[in-house]
Amino acid sequence: MILIHCPYCDEKRPEIEFANAGQAHVARPLDPSSQSDEEWEAYLFIRANPRGRHHERWRHVHGCGRFFNAVRDTVTDKFETTYKAGEPRR
């Protein structure tokens, strides 16, 4: 069970307090109706799924309830950093 640092609580807590929320920085288009089918498909479904450095979202669902972003290596499962939603991509 991995340990995750919640940037809002500023504490490392066990994974079972958190819910993974998929790839990070997949912003919802401001005007979805202007999107082509391809663009909308990319927003909905296309994911990076990298072997290595991965930007992902977590929610501290059994803690403060906040969504935040993380950079984690998907081969070692080790976190590089976590940061608050809205902060620039790291």
């Binding site: 991995i2 993974n20 799924n49 072997r51 081969v75 499962d77």
Partner: peptide, 13 residues
């Protein structure tokens, strides 16, 4: 497990 991983290493829970 709930997160993307290539580690072939799952969690106890």
């Amino acid at each position: 497990d709930q997160y993307v991983s290539y580690s072939q290493r799952g969690a106890l829970h």
